[in-house]
């Protein structure tokens, strides 16, 4: 018997081409959308009801609102309101969340407020703000702030509590000022929690702003939805919802995920 050298050529690791990677990333969500469209069309044909318009009808409404720029303008108005309210909610949540996570007395003091904030429906904040502020920029900002801040605060508290206490101890020994600790230690350590909070915040803010725009404002996607509802145009309601959903998807895939990849690139370095 001859000695067979126990050697095997190293299998080269297959590296995905950028195009293949992009296709793999895009294909599943596209397939999901396709399944939903087909399912809707089947449902519309089976039910044959004016309350469930078929895909062509909804597409026709989309063609009515998108090319004229009306959709983009109204979505821009709504997004601006969401952004303003979210900035307020974010500022409150970061300050409050850090304080609560670090101080048991403050945690006990604010706990009922946060529970109340989490349980009160967005509808209540929308109604109250319309009553208090009327047709004013304050209405959407405060309503979104009140609707989003409690959930965001909970995310921040969880983020602060997940920070490695050894790192805080190191920062204390090296006498790193609080402002530098916040910028270089606390916020970067909380990035996953802040991003999931931002996603949650956007979805909550959208639900609140639609109500505010329905009840108290004369512009924005909520107002348009209400107009289509009043004229019993179900395809119009769906078209506005789809147009806004597409913009939100662009924000998620184009901005939030890019931001997440950028902020967590240190995790993807090869380990020695």
């Amino acid at each position: 018997m001859t000695d067979v050298p126990m050697m095997r050529a190293a299998t080269p690791r297959r590296r995905q081409m950028p195009l293949a990677r992009a296709v793999r990333a895009v294909l599943p969500p596209l397939a999901f959308c396709l399944v939903v469209i087909v399912a809707w069309e089947v449902m519309a044909r089976v039910l044959a009801s004016p309350l469930v318009p078929d895909v062509a009808e909804v597409y026709g409404e989309l063609l009515r609102i998108v090319p004229t720029g009306a959709a983009l303008q109204q979505i821009g108005v709504t997004l601006g309101r969401i952004l303003s309210g979210s900035v307020l909610a974010f500022a409150v949540a970061v300050g409050l969340g850090i304080a609560i996570a670090r101080n048991r007395l403050l945690a006990a003091f604010f706990e009922p407020g946060i529970i109340l904030g989490l349980t009160v429906p967005g509808l209540v904040w929308a109604l109250l703000c319309v009553i208090w502020f009327g047709v004013s920029w304050k209405t959407p900002v405060v309503a979104i702030g009140l609707g989003v801040a409690p959930a965001l605060t909970v995310s921040v508290v969880q983020g602060v509590r997940a920070i490695d206490p050894d790192l805080i101890e190191m920062a204390h020994v090296f006498r790193i000022p609080r402002s530098a600790q916040l910028r270089r230690l606390w916020l970067p350590a909380m990035v996953p929690f802040l991003l999931s909070g931002a996603r949650l915040g956007f979805s909550l803010a959208w639900k609140v702003i639609v109500l505010v725009e329905i009840f108290g404002l004369s512009s924005g996607v909520g107002y348009q939805l209400n107009s289509e509802f009043s004229s019993q145009n179900v395809a119009g309601v769906l078209a506005w919802t789809i147009a806004f959903g597409v913009v939100m998807a662009i924000i998620e895939y184009g901005m939030l995920q890019t931001l997440e990849r950028r902020l967590t690139r240190w995790r993807r370095v090869s380990r020695v």
Partner: peptide
């Protein structure tokens, strides 16, 4: 006061130079 711990206690999201700079700045 400089301290060296059992574990390096570096901020993984900062580059090596920045990990040192955070202490020198302070």
């Amino acid at each position: 006061i400089g301290m060296v711990f059992q574990q390096p206690r570096l901020l993984d999201w900062l580059k090596v130079a920045e990990n040192v700079a955070i202490a020198t700045d302070a």
